[in-house]
Amino acid sequence: MKRSYVIKRIVYAVFIFFVVLTLNFFIPRIGVQDPAERYYPPQGGMSTIEYEIIKQFTREQYGFDVSTFQQYVRYLQGLLRLDLGTSLRSGSPKVTTLIAQRLPWTLVLSVSTLVISLVIGLLCGTLAAWKRGRWQDTLLLNASTISVALPSFFIALMLSFYLGFRLELFPAYTNPNMVAQFDWGWGAIRMVFTNAALPIMSMSLGGIIGYSQITRNSVIAVTNEDYVITARAKGLPQATVLYKHVLRNALLPLATSIGMNIGGLIGGAIIIEQVFNWQGMGTLFLEANSTKDYPLMMGIMLFLSAFAILANLVTELLYVILDPRVTVGDKR
């Protein structure tokens, strides 16, 4: 039954999310050091009593004054109110506020990267499969060999240097002061062709080649299936066979890999964002890391995990529409 499959997937996703948030809570607490001491190391010229008062005050402020279990309950209660806690930076901003501020910037990069790599990857992969063994195919093979050897930050640096500084085609970095004023709508679209162009290019390259490879291999595998011969035996023209019988089946493995990539896409932006001084989630995470801002780090981690789990769930549910066989049970 379709519905039982859908329910099963959703329950499973919720379960995984629960496991993740629990780990996310407990792992940072494995450290034996008193967090208050970590934030305020003992300084000279302060009496023991004064220091104890400060530590106690700090514990209360950050919620370490109760048992770990109580902290866990509080953490869960906070989550229910969509509250990820308070950052340690000055002004004590809410973690959710910080994430909300940076998220659109990362979304611009990752959504356009996904769309661009999918569209180009599909076209190139199908072409390579169609022209199997000819130069188009060989080109793809060589390109993927090279791209495996080139890390994405290297590509980012090269693009930034040549297209950004030398040719001045696109801005090579972004002014950090722009963060607060994200403009949904035309502003975001214009950004794709200006400030975001180089980061998107650097991030897309690997995706284009990855999706091309998957598409190529899966199209070739499907081309040899019996039902494709049946379709040709019916007298259908080549293009119809490719479009109606080959691609529809060849896209199934692609759907799975998209689901797995979406989660990584936001995380993968960390390095690229650094290269272009892009004020997204990646940069936020690195900032949190260098200032030992644990609530912020935990918040970002949890958010990214939730995003990845959600992306996987969506692809799994998409499968129900794409592949009628899924309804029989868990066939994969």
């Binding site: 299936e225 019996d226 039902y227 011969i229 049946t230 379709a231 035996a233 019916k234 109606k244 019988h245 529809r248 089946n249 199934l252 794409l322 592949d323 009628p324 066989r325």
Partner: peptide, 16 residues
């Protein structure tokens, strides 16, 4: 001219 294949499971498109 038409052809009937050996294994109908694989000779029919599974998603149509």
């Amino acid at each position: 001219m038409a052809m009937i294949f050996q294994d109908a499971m694989t000779a029919l498109n599974p998603v149509m």
